[in-house]
Write a protein that binds this DNA or RNA. Structure first.
Lengths: 243, 243
DNA sequence: CGAGCCGTTGATAGTCATCAAAATGAGTGG
DNA sequence: CCACTCATTTTGATGACTATCAACGGCTCG
C-alpha cells in the first residue's frame, strides 16, 4: 500500500460501487479514526465474546465467518474481501456462536464503535451506505442458502467459483481468472461438502475444459458456459445496478 | 385485533424484545403513517421488480421469502412471524431474484419509505432498533446455512421445529407447542429436503416420542432431549440477552 | 360425491460421505 | 542440494443417506 493513501479508501471505493456518496460523506468516512493491524493466516479477527467496541474493516487479504455443528462439522457462512466491513453486525448484536478468522495474512483497520454511530448520525448518506453493504451481505447469504440447499455438488462448486470471480475483480473488463485464496477443505466448508467430493467436482469441471488450474490460480476458458452450468447470474452481487 | 389498539404495537413489542426504546421512540414508531391490507394465502406480498416505495410490516399471519434454482427447485430463505418487518432491505436494495409470499392469510401495514427514513433520522434509537431486527434476520439466515449444510436430515427437521417453537412463543413461560403454519413440502423447501424425506423424519421423531401431532398442532413431550438431538440452542434468536 | 391437496408408504436408484492411502508440492534444516 | 516434514490434493473402494418414482389414504370443500 503506497504511503499517503488513506487506508480506508478501499472501503469507500467499495461502498461507492453500490451507493452514491457526496464529497462530505466521502470525507467523513475517510476521516474515521482508526488503528491499523495485521493478522496472520488462521488467527481470529473476531472471536466469541470478544471486544464489541470496535468495528473491523478488511483492507487487504481475506477472512471468513464460521459456525460449528454439534459433531464438530464446520460451516463457513461468509467470506470477506478487501474493503468489507466484517463485523458491522456486532455494533448491534452480541454474537457468541460465530467466529471470524483470517484466511490469509490480512491488514485491517479498527474503528471505534462510537465513531461509527456518530458518523451515521451526522452523515446519513454514509450511514445509508454502510447499512446497504450489510444488506448485500444478506443477499449473498441467501444465495448461498439456495446453493447449498437446492443445487447438486458440481453446480455448487461452479457457482461459488463464479461468485468469487466476480467479487474479486474490481472492474467489469477484468478477465475471469484469479488466485483462489482457500483450500478445497475450506471450499467444502462453504458448500456443505467433503474435501474429497469438492476435489472430484473441481476435477470434473477441469476435465470438461471449463476450468484451468495452475496451482491455486484458476481461469475460465468458457465463462458463459460455466455460468450456465453453475446457474450463476451476478445480479445478486450488484443489486443496485440500473436503478 | 381489538379496536383502539394501534396495529403497529405488535411491531414495537417485537423491537423491544431486543432493543430498549424510550417513550419518544416508541411514540414515533407508533405514529408512523401506514395503510392496512390483508392478503390471502399464497399471494405475493412483495414481488420481483415490485414497488419499492413502501415497507411492509407483518401484523398477523405468516409469510416467507424464497428463491429459485435453474431446475425450478425452490429454496425458502426466511420465514416471517407477526411483528416482523419483511422487506426492510428493499429500502436499500433493488432485489429482483427473491419473492415474498403469504403463508397464511396475513394482515400487514404498509409504511411509506420516506417516513421510515425520516424516522431513522429524527429518532436514532428507533432506527437502531430497526437495523438490529434486520441483523437478527441475518443471524437466523446463517444458522439456517449451518443447518442445511452440516446437519443430517433428522437433525435439520428437529432444529427447525425447535426454532419455530421459540419464535412463536412470546414469553419464556409458554409451553413448547404450536400450530405449524406450513406443509411438509414447505418444510422441505426450507431444509433442502424432499417432501417424502421430511415426512419420514417427522414420523421418526414422532416414533421416538419427541413429537406429538394432532393435525398441524405439535407438542414436544421432552423439550430438552429434543433440543439436544436437534443441536439447538436459542442463543442466536436472542442475541442481546444478558448484555 | 368427486376433486384436490396433503400426508403416508414402499421400492429402487443415485449422490455424496466415509475410510484409507498414495501422490504432489512447499517449506525447513542439515 | 538433499532429506524430511507437513499440508494439501488426488485416487479407489465401499456404504449410507437422501432422492426419485409411484401409488394409496385421509381430509376438506364445493
Amino acid at each position: 500500500m503506497p504511503k499517503n493513501v488513506n487506508p480506508l479508501a478501499v472501503m469507500v471505493r467499495k461502498l461507492e460501487t453500490h451507493t452514491p456518496l457526496g464529497h462530505d460523506d466521502r470525507a467523513a468516512l475517510l476521516a474515521l479514526p482508526h488503528t491499523l493491524r495485521t493478522y496472520e493466516n488462521q488467527t481470529y479477527l473476531v472471536r466469541r465474546g470478544g471486544d464489541r467496541s470496535e468495528c473491523v474493516v478488511l483492507l487487504a487479504g481475506f477472512a471468513f465467518r464460521w459456525k460449528q455443528a454439534a459433531e464438530g462439522l464446520r460451516q463457513i457462512v461468509s467470506v470477506y474481501v478487501p474493503g468489507d466491513l466484517i463485523n458491522l453486525d456486532r455494533l448491534f448484536l452480541n454474537i457468541v456462536e460465530e467466529h471470524i478468522e483470517a484466511l490469509t495474512i490480512t491488514d485491517v483497520a479498527m474503528i471505534p464503535r462510537e465513531a461509527m454511530l456518530e458518523l451515521a448520525r451526522s452523515h446519513p448518506a454514509a450511514g445509508y451506505a454502510l447499512i446497504t453493504s450489510s444488506m448485500i451481505e444478506g443477499l449473498i447469504s441467501r444465495e448461498w442458502m439456495l446453493n447449498i440447499g437446492r443445487r447438486d455438488a458440481r453446480t455448487r462448486v461452479a457457482h461459488l467459483l463464479c461468485e468469487f470471480s466476480v467479487r474479486l475483480s474490481s472492474g467489469p473488463a477484468v478477465e475471469h481468472g484469479y488466485d483462489l485464496p482457500m483450500t478445497q477443505e475450506q471450499l467444502g466448508d462453504i458448500l456443505g461438502l467433503t474435501t474429497v467430493h469438492v476435489n472430484r467436482m473441481v476435477k470434473s469441471l477441469e476435465a470438461e475444459g471449463l476450468l484451468i488450474r495452475k496451482g491455486r490460480y484458476i481461469t475460465f476458458p468458457d465463462w458463459n458456459t460455466l455460468c450456465r452450468l453453475a446457474d450463476f447470474s451476478p445480479r445478486y452481487l450488484h443489486p443496485n445496478d440500473g436503478t
